[in-house]
Simulated scan of single mutants.
Amino acid sequence: MKILTVVGARPQFIKCAPVSRELRKEHEEVLVHTGQHYDREMSDLFFEELGIPKPDYNLGIGSATHAHQTGEMLAGIEDLILEEKPDLLLVYGDTNSTLAGALAAAKVHVPVAHVEAGLRSFDRRMPEEVNRVLTDHCSDLLLCPTETAMENLRKEGITRGVHLTGDVMVDALLGHAEVAKTSPILAELGLERGQYRLATVHRAENTDDPAKLAAIMGALGDLGDVVLPCHPRTEKMLKNTGLYEEANRRIRLIPPVGYLEMLALESSAHQILTDSGGVQKEAYVLGVPCITLRETTEWVETVQDSWNMLVGSDHEAIVRAARTFSPKRERSDVFGKGEAARAIAVIIGEKTE
């Protein structure tokens, strides 16, 4: 079976790594990188650390408006589908790369498999939510990480081709946790385990709104013990709005880090503040309390189990939550036990039988 896999952003590289290893045991995989994340810290380093094969194609799309980026990806992926003639196209998550891949395949009648199907934040203001919904409705195999995701699809009338697999990010995390412990990042930054908060801020809803960005940075600055690997878009917006110098004085801003370094920082933090879906989930699996800088989340299980708290971008709410929040329940294996990649490979294999 020939599978054309489309990735473009660092969360997709993480998810792709364990699945690609399983698929290549029995199938031919053609890996396409759209170029959505294109610099070394956001792309090449992840391929190296995770042992992902070099992409067969790199579309080199880069950053642009949603419409221009998605349109260029759509055209580029369609050309590759017509050239490679895959039996199946595989996409991950909820980025513009995900939607472009799914639409391109559906238009030329190539079956689509969607890893991380069924997630919903129920906030259509988020471009990721639009991408999720549209991708699910043109997919043939919907590979769900949780029971909640499966129920979301049932409510939308999607019942064919739906499978519960567990979450592939758990596979990746468990597979690299021991190696991450050897990372020298804490020593290099002069950090001690349990003595700092880790923050990430990258979503457009926060970075592209100067008032929200100022409120978040002000709150992180007030906490006084925050380390923040700075996403390129966040750094650009901080400089454009004149917030960078003040933020850099009050917050430990560092360049983006690789996957293993990020796992080391996450596992050793006493608290995480983030607007990233993947980091929310990693915090839960690692047992680190999480404050989410959004008003909604697709990972509702982390909130239901009291390990994650939604606070939005309000300055006082962030500070108050960071100083008072603590989990009240034991964590569960709601995201699976690290066997999702194999389950996905089996389901895809059965598709051709």
Results as ranks from 00 to 15, higher is better:
M1Y: 01
M1D: 00
K2R: 15
R10W: 02
C16M: 04
K25S: 08
E28P: 08
G35T: 12
Q36S: 15
Y38M: 09
R40A: 12
E41H: 12
E48G: 08
A67T: 14
Q69Y: 10
Q69C: 13
M73C: 14
L74W: 14
G76V: 06
E78D: 15
L80Q: 04
E84C: 09
L89Y: 10
T98I: 08
G101M: 02
A102G: 01
L103G: 04
A104D: 03
A105G: 02
V108G: 06
H109L: 14
V112P: 01
A113C: 02
A117R: 01
R120F: 07
N131V: 03
N131S: 09
D136E: 07
L141A: 12
L143R: 05
T146Q: 06
N152L: 00
E156A: 00
V170L: 08
K181N: 04
A187P: 03
L189E: 07
L189T: 06
L191I: 13
Q195L: 12
L198C: 00
A204Q: 06
D209C: 05
A215E: 11
M217T: 14
G218V: 04
A219H: 03
L220A: 07
D222H: 14
G224M: 05
T241F: 13
E246F: 06
R249D: 14
R249V: 08
R249F: 09
I251G: 05
I254T: 13
S268N: 11
A269T: 09
D275R: 02
V279F: 00
P289S: 11
I291M: 05
T292C: 02
R294W: 02
T296F: 01
W307E: 07
H315D: 01
A317Y: 08
V319E: 05
A322C: 07
T324Y: 05
F335A: 10
E339V: 05
E339H: 15
A343H: 15
K351V: 12
E353A: 14
